[in-house]
């Protein structure tokens, strides 16, 4: 299956057709996407500020990460579902949108970082043992997520 087949499949899926069939469906899904994105990135930023050692320094990194983890997970789930719903409704258009390509590329790298360095650094004691690596993880995570969000918001202007 080529990439274009995947775009065609998404465009012709019942989900895409359903989103296209209601006047406000896309806009409402987009608002939910934005709300869950705030939840996801807000909780990740809280942990990143701790990793950087600039907030909540009286508590351990793992305590802060554990405290928000289930909310980050919920944020991931809702953001991915709403994102895929929006994508399905105009997949062919997205295949030719440079900002969408940037967004997905940044997202891919951001997710790799989240499930490798970020996950390791938020385990008990790890960040305290590797403060430089912890700070590097936080800086990369913040920059990548901002790149994802900013390129995502400009998809509509291409």
């Amino acid at each position: 299956m080529s990439l274009m087949d995947f775009y065609m499949f998404a465009e012709n899926s019942p989900l895409g057709a359903w989103v296209r069939s209601y006047t406000y469906a896309f806009s409402l899904i987009q608002v939910v996407h934005l709300l869950s994105m705030t939840m996801l990135l807000g909780t990740i930023l809280t942990v990143n500020l701790r990793l950087l050692g600039v907030a909540m320094t009286s508590r351990s990194v793992s305590e802060v990460a554990d405290g928000v983890r289930s909310w980050s997970t919920a944020g991931y789930i809702v953001t991915v579902i709403t994102g895929f719903a929006m994508f399905s409704s105009e997949a062919i258009k997205m295949s030719d949108n440079s900002m969408w390509s940037y967004k997905i590329s940044f997202l891919f790298v951001a997710l790799i970082l989240q499930f490798t360095m970020y996950r390791t650094m938020t385990k008990p004691g790890r960040a305290e043992k590797n403060p430089i690596l912890a700070k590097l993880t936080a800086v990369l995570s913040i920059l990548l997520w901002f790149a994802v969000g900013m390129s995502a918001r400009t998809i509509a202007f291409i």
């Binding site: 934005l34 807000g42 969000g149």
Partner: peptide, 18 residues
């Protein structure tokens, strides 16, 4: 500007969420 503004949501409201 609108992209900057959207990401600011995270630094303002996102941190209040905690």
């Amino acid at each position: 500007l609108i992209a900057l503004h959207v990401m600011g949501t995270v630094t303002g409201i996102g941190l209040i969420l905690a």
